[in-house]
């Protein structure tokens, strides 16, 4: 393997000048984004340095409980982010997103690490954590789109759902078209990404592996595995999130509890 060129403080500072260009453009064109650019840049630096710093002991000590702990934290943060992107909310939405990502992404990352790649031990942080991160980052987009669509249809097209209930539909019969529409919506980004990958884009994981010196054909195979893991995680996660949300918004008497949906003030 070729030696990876090291990034020192000087190189980081040089990269920062790229962001200063962003800020300068914002000031010059009066985009009003200067503050946002600064905050987002600061978050990037702090969060990534923190991640690198946290991963050092986890990679060094190789304790399964540490890996599970950081994995759970990553899932909780992803769930929070997925919920934050939805324009509407309800009580229990965080739990729904967490459970959906835990089963969808956790399951997919475990399967990828333990069965497909066949890592030993199955929780090896060097594999499990980047795999989980990749899957989470992509799945949360799909998940938030699915939840958002589900809530907006129930909120804005309530008469359509209640018309079916009025004809004697059970809650599930009335909700099934909404569920299908929401999951379809959730799948669009990953399906688009799967069509464009390799032609238009080189995904982050493959870029990382290429920089790290992995032969391109191996990097490509890893990327194929990752894409399919993401697709599975989005499908399973969004189905779960939408089903849990629907169940929470209909009651035992097969009524749509519209008042449980709250619009978020932006």
């Amino acid at each position: 393997m070729t030696e990876l060129a090291e990034i020192g403080p000087w190189q980081l500072a040089l990269a920062t000048s790229l962001i200063l260009l962003n800020g300068a453009l914002s000031l010059w064109l009066r985009l009003g984004l200067t503050r946002k650019v600064l905050i987002a840049s600061a978050r990037t630096v702090v969060q990534l340095l923190l991640l690198g710093w946290i991963l050092v002991p986890i990679f060094t000590f190789e304790q399964p409980w540490m890996v599970m702990g950081i994995g759970t934290l990553m899932i909780a943060l992803a769930a929070r982010e997925a919920v934050r992107r939805s324009a509407r909310t309800y009580r229990g939405i965080h739990g729904a997103a967490f459970l959906a990502l835990l089963i969808g992404c956790g399951g997919s990352a475990l399967l990828g690490s333990a069965v497909i790649v066949g890592v030993d031990p199955w929780w090896d942080p060097r594999y499990l954590i980047p795999l989980l991160g990749m899957v989470l980052g992509n799945a949360l987009t799909g998940l938030s789109l699915g939840i958002d669509r589900c809530l907006s249809v129930l909120d804005e097209q309530r008469p359509r759902v209640e018309a079916l209930l009025s004809m004697g539909a059970t809650w599930w019969e009335a909700a099934r078209p909404v569920a299908a529409e929401s999951v379809r919506m959730a799948m669009i980004p990953i399906l688009n990404a799967m069509s464009a990958v390799g032609l238009v884009t080189i995904p982050g994981m493959m870029t990382g592996q290429l920089l790290g010196g992995t032969p391109p054909d191996q990097a490509a195979r890893y990327q194929i595995v990752i894409m399919f893991m993401i697709a599975a995680a989005v499908a399973l996660g969004s189905v779960l999130a939408v089903l849990i949300s629907l169940r929470a918004l209909f009651d035992g008497d097969h009524r749509l509890r519209h008042e449980r949906i709250r619009r978020r003030d932006r």
């Binding site: 097209q157 008469p159 359509r160 209640e162 018309a163 209930l165 009025s166 004809m167 004697g168 539909a169 059970t170 078209p177 529409e181 008497d253 097969h254 009524r255």
Partner: peptide, 21 residues
Amino acid sequence: LGAPVWRSRVCLVAQDVPAHP
């Protein structure tokens, strides 16, 4: 009877009929 059976027998038709898929 349960709500779905009740509604299949006591059927409401709303004034504004929504668009369905």
